[in-house]
Simulated scan of single mutants.
Amino acid sequence: MTRIRLLPTAALVLGAIYCLVPTLWILIAATKSKTDLFSTATYLPSFGAGIWQNIVDLSTYQGGIFWQWMLNSFGYALIGGVLASLVSAACGYAIAMYSFRGRKVVFNTILACVLLPQIVLAIPQYLLLSNVGLTDSYLGVLLPQLFNPYGIYLCRIYAASSVPQSLLEAGRIDGASEWKLFHSVGLRLMGPGLITVFLLQFIAIWNNFLLPFVMVNSDDKFPLTVGLYSLLRHGAAEASLYSLVITGTLLSVLPVIALFLSLQRYWRLDLVTGALK
């Protein structure tokens, strides 16, 4: 029995090691200079000024375009995350709170979209947006990410469990409009769920590669994922750029960690717990 109980723990430890080893390698490799990267042991860190020189070289590469990529990624993820969360909240609230013809069909269709890999939609989305001249633009990257089926699913569940119909009926009796009820009652009670939806969508957009890779051609509109990939391709002919790619990868993780830590106090893993006090 003891051995059987140890198996899940061992599996979790192996999974943690599997996730931490690449992160540790990135952290150590970023401390090495361009010459030390290929001449020293893999997991032996450098205690010199290698990481600072790498950051300086990365900041000056092509006029500091890395920070433009960082700003683009932050803009895509922040604006897209906020708007997608609001769209998800409105859709989930409507499906949960109102009875209308075809509600089950709509919800089942959204569930089917959750199971659909988003990668298969990149080319159709490109073709659709190219017809209206939105390719190679910021809107071309933002618009396809505003509809988040999984976020709608989460908001529907959270609205059904945290927004009581009796409270809405009381508001209607007092003369509040449906928009007022959604804005003043629904959004407030769905707050913890919306934080979760925003965090998940922010990370999804921040890590998205294929959509901006297909949609954007200009270097100054690249997010970090596509920008670092283009830098990596150039590194095939110039090995010294590998240090910049590694340092850029390390820096790209920091905003996500900071966001997660700042929102952790508001984040609720269990979305079915009520928000009423």
Rank of each mutant, 00 (worst) to 15 (best):
M1E: 13
T2H: 10
I4N: 14
R5G: 15
T9I: 08
G15D: 09
G15S: 14
G15H: 10
I17A: 13
Y18M: 13
Y18A: 14
C19L: 14
T23Q: 12
L24F: 14
L24D: 10
I28W: 08
A29T: 12
K32L: 13
D36A: 15
L37V: 04
F38K: 06
T40E: 15
A41G: 13
S46F: 02
F47H: 12
F47N: 07
A49F: 03
G50V: 12
N54L: 09
L58H: 05
Y61T: 02
Y61E: 02
Q62L: 04
Q62G: 04
G63F: 00
W69K: 01
M70R: 01
G81T: 09
V82I: 15
A84H: 04
A84V: 10
A90R: 12
A94G: 04
A96E: 10
Y98E: 05
S99D: 10
G102C: 11
V105F: 14
I110G: 07
V114H: 04
L115C: 07
L116A: 14
P117S: 05
Q118S: 13
Q118L: 08
A122Q: 07
I123S: 06
I123H: 09
I123Y: 09
P124F: 15
P124C: 15
Q125H: 10
L128A: 15
S130W: 01
G133V: 03
G133H: 00
L142K: 03
Q145H: 06
Q145L: 11
L146W: 08
N148V: 13
P149M: 09
G151Y: 05
L154W: 03
R156Q: 14
I157E: 06
Y158W: 11
A159N: 00
A160E: 13
S162Q: 02
E169H: 06
E169S: 02
A170R: 00
G171S: 06
I173E: 06
I173C: 01
G175P: 01
W179S: 06
K180P: 02
K180W: 02
F182K: 06
F182N: 00
F182C: 05
L187M: 12
L187I: 01
R188L: 04
L189T: 00
M190N: 03
G193I: 01
Q201T: 02
I203E: 02
I203Y: 09
W206G: 01
N207V: 08
N207I: 06
F209R: 03
L210Q: 13
L210E: 13
P212D: 12
P212T: 08
M215T: 00
M215Q: 04
N217W: 07
D219S: 10
D219H: 11
K221R: 12
K221Q: 06
K221M: 11
L224A: 03
T225D: 03
L228E: 09
R233G: 04
R233P: 03
G235C: 09
A239G: 08
L241D: 01
Y242A: 15
G248F: 09
T249Y: 03
L250D: 10
P255A: 00
I257K: 11
L261E: 03
L261R: 10
L261T: 11
Q264S: 14
Y266F: 05
Y266W: 01
W267Y: 14
R268N: 08
R268M: 13
L271K: 02
T273A: 11
K277Q: 13
